[in-house]
Design a protein around this nucleic acid. Sequence first.
DNA 1: TCTGGGGTCCTAGGACCC
DNA 2: TCTGGGGTCCTAGGACCC
Length: 395
Amino acid sequence: MAKVIVHIDLNAFYARCEEIKNPSLENKPIAVGHEGRAGIVSTCSYKAREFGVRSGMPTFKAKNLCPQLILIPGDYRFYSVMSKTFFNFVKRYTKLVEMVSVDECFADFTEVIKGQDDVISFFRKMQMELFNETQLTCSIGVSVTRFLAKMASNYQKPMGLTIIRRRDIKKIIFPLKIEEMFGIGKKTAPKLKSLGINTIGDLYVKMQNQEEEVKHLLGKFYDTLKEWLEGKGSDEIEIEKVDPKSIGNSTTLPYDTDDINDVNKYLLDLAKEVSLRAKKEEKLGYTIQIVVKDHTFKSYNKSLTLENPFNDWNTIYEQAKQLYATNFRETTIRLVGITLQNLIDIQDMAVQMSLFDYEKYEEESATKLLINKINRSLKKPLLKRASEVKKDGNS
DNA sequence: TCTGGGGTCCTAGGACCC
DNA sequence: TCTGGGGTCCTAGGACCC
């Protein structure tokens, strides 16, 4: 029996929040984002979109398109409160809710819908209820898989409601432009177009006629896409919060620079930020990665995996500094970032060691990492070498 | 005055072990 | 003795999403 999978998307969420805070902004072109170097539009109102303003657009460009655009700095605390209100609202209907980001969720309405003879009216009522209680507007997509529900919520905005049954795929999904397909971005779309694929339906047809060509282009993704288009994609809702796989921070510098001392100052701030977040999440990481964008916007990653996991700012900073110095000393850069990867739970680590050892380990991890590094290079047992190195260190 | 910042997942080559 | 093949880990880069 098919499930009823719903995707709910809050329309122009940040911009709508600003309108709720200050109703005089309603029906005006507004955007959340900051001015100046590297300022971009985070979200804009539908009025602003009429002028061609889009999210991700540099703010100066948005201003050019729409001189009367009202730029508002983000009030992320307020957005977070509104976001929680939204999720709590959905959870009143079903506990099977998966939050995908601040402004969207998947939910399993299979049980809720049983016995409802007018599904459309049911979701319309829900949509109005959300609006009346919170002033938030949303688009709702109802289908049998996550992919189709997502495509459905995207089909009509704002305040859209779209139901896609399996038999509607050809009618609703296939005529859409290929770039409107979830998972196809601005790199893959042109490649598909060069094969004569302009719509999602074209893609599906080519999957039958020119299988090898399309497969070569899409790799492993081919099978996933095919399943999606046949209505056989995943219909599972993940209720539990997913464990982060990495924790990172990055920043665009106020000016391009090749001064390593300048960069180190930013690396220090980033290291502290990453450390703080890792500790809050109770995670340690084995791998540190730095990311750099040069003045032409090309990005580079360099990473390093250590023997023992860590999350103290000191180790993060020292390793990042090292990675930077060995790879980018001569580069003029505009952005730098640090990411901690290969994460494990602190508990898992602490259980293996005694708590006492763990606390000590945390304090000394920077020293210990160094010891391990030396040990590895000498290929000698840890404890023996550690005592020797300590002695050396004290002398 | 081009292009934020947070992520996830995939690919591919090389090192290394057996 | 100069050479196979499988598996895993590490690293770098790229595509995509919100």
